[in-house]
Amino acid sequence: MKTSVARKILMALSGFFLLLFLLQHLTINSLSVVSEDVFNNVSHFMGTNWIVQFLLQPVLLFGVIFHLVMGLYLDIQNQRARNIKYAQNNPGTNSSWMSRNMKITGIMILLFLGLHFADFWIPELNTKFIEGDMSGMKESGFGLRYFEELQHKFTEVWRVAIYVLAFVFLSLHLLHGFQSAFQSVGFNHNKYTPWIKKLGNLYAIVVPLGFIIIAIYHYTTQL
């Protein structure tokens, strides 16, 4: 934690962890398109299993907060490292927009997380731990509630639009972040790095696109 190299390695490790989390999140979301029952059962398991709830969830929350706080801290240091700016700067000739604007795309993802938590996580915490209802059942008492709650969130077009936009920012963040994390932990090899870059581009497009398709699917099936 003491040096710039140690901090960038930690930034990459938290990034890797979040990459894995996104895959898991997308997999469970995909089930909502395949089968209402399977999605309900898996959601109930994730929402009530104590390992998921009291071990993995706090680790995830820590990972998100660490990645965010460290990112902002490094950015403040970076601003200080160039106290007088250039009168003319031409960064487009030597680096990609995505690589230079991780802070902007990251903050957009953070703002989206505010809405996303208000939509799903906070009501979930309220139901389970304030109201004390761990059953996962609908208020009517017939069937599990998760699929219905998901559907109810995707009835308004503005919310779907915000979700889609947020995943575009996530895609831009990942287009640099995926391959950058490998470089930070010291993985750069002439034989493998070109493939890691290709895999990174694939991940950065396919995963956010998956989330977008699922959101639009639930909106259009309720029209």
């Binding site: 710039s4 960064p91 640099h176």
Partner: peptide, 16 residues
Amino acid sequence: DEEGFGNCSNTGACEV
């Protein structure tokens, strides 16, 4: 770090 250089964010501008 003591000299006050910034952190690397792998933009690759240096290599170019």
